[in-house]
Simulated assay, not measured.
Amino acid sequence: MAGELNGKVAVVTGAASGIGLASADALLSAGARVVLVDRDEAAVKSRCGERGDRAIPLVTDLLDPKACAALVPRALELAGQIDVFHANAGLYVGGDLVDADTDAIDRMLNLNVNVVMKNVHDVLPHMIERQTGDIVVTSSLAAHFPTPWEPVYASSKWAINCFVQTVRRQVFKHGIRVGSVSPGPVISALLADWPEEKLKEAKASGSLMEASEVAATILFMLTRPRGVTIRDVVLMPTQFDL
């Protein structure tokens, strides 16, 4: 799909690693300029340095309300426009609810739900003015299945699933497409917090995906004709037992 996004600008949050970095790479390969947003300054600047001038670093801690509110204006200053916004940054809390740290719950819900809603809220006026744009949210297979080993994380993704479906209905009249990608287990830093027995089981059975496979799906969504919206994609390893 080389060149299909020539002249476009994408913003990807949580872009220094995992699905975010794979998404940025896919967008760059399709010709877009990409603003890589991450709180890890050394990592995001290193990633951009390796990828050339079309990869633009933006160091932001999205859990800081002022920094979060400044994200879209700063991205517009750096790149001039936003055609694609990929809300990808997220945290994970797994295990039994009774064992969960309540501060960790607050941080995860803030980033997985509140920050996504605020980022989309902030980018919409720009897209509405231009009467075009694409918003993609990284959700999870957990948004579609009441995963017993991750009730807090799954609940955050169920909320985002509803958010995507309702906002899409509000903004399609402005030429804006809104969709989500819901992967099963992906090899990423988030899996470090998986229950050890579930991680061992997934590794042993080959029930894990690469982040690049999720990114390829996102690129497919973004390169459909403007009259077509891919609203929800659920993808999982073929060997995943669900």
Rank of each mutant, 00 (worst) to 15 (best):
K157F: 00
G227Q: 08
N6W: 13
A70D: 10
N161S: 14
D96H: 11
Y92C: 13
V11F: 02
L190M: 12
D232C: 03
V72E: 00
V164Y: 03
A211V: 03
K173G: 13
W194E: 12
E213C: 07
L21D: 11
A192G: 14
A55C: 06
A211M: 00
I187S: 14
P185I: 00
Y153V: 06
D61H: 08
S182L: 06
I135M: 05
C68M: 07
V12I: 08
G95E: 08
V116E: 02
S155A: 14
D122H: 05
K8C: 06
L78P: 05
W149S: 13
L199I: 05
V234K: 06
A154V: 02
V171G: 04
K66E: 12
V113I: 15
I105H: 07
I128W: 01
G133Q: 04
T60S: 12
V84T: 04
G133H: 04
L109P: 06
N6G: 12
H86L: 10
I56T: 09
A159C: 06
M221R: 07
A22K: 00
S140N: 06
K198I: 05
C162I: 12
G20T: 03
E77L: 13
V113Q: 10
Y92N: 12
A154T: 04
R168Y: 14
V113D: 10
H86S: 05
Q165Y: 06
L36P: 00
R54W: 08
R107P: 05
A55Q: 02
E41N: 11
L199K: 13
V59S: 06
N110S: 14
I19H: 01
L76F: 06
L191M: 10
K118E: 12
L235G: 03
S139T: 07
E50H: 04
E129Y: 07
I218S: 04
A43T: 15
A189M: 09
G18Y: 01
L97N: 14
N119L: 15
A75D: 02
V98T: 13
V113N: 08
L91W: 11
L21N: 08
E213L: 09
A215L: 05
I135R: 04
A42G: 13
P237D: 01
P195D: 09
V98D: 14
V136T: 05
M1R: 13
L78Y: 04
R74C: 09
P148S: 14
V84S: 00
V44I: 15
P146S: 13
D232T: 10
R130K: 15
G3Y: 15
V115L: 06
F145Q: 12
D38C: 05
S140L: 03
I19W: 00
I135L: 08
G227A: 09
A42C: 07
L190N: 02
E213G: 08
V178D: 01
K118W: 02
S207L: 01
Y153R: 08
L78V: 08
V12K: 02
G7P: 10
H121L: 13
G31T: 09
G52L: 07
Y92H: 11
I230Q: 04
V137A: 01
A87H: 05
E129M: 10
S182T: 03
D103R: 13
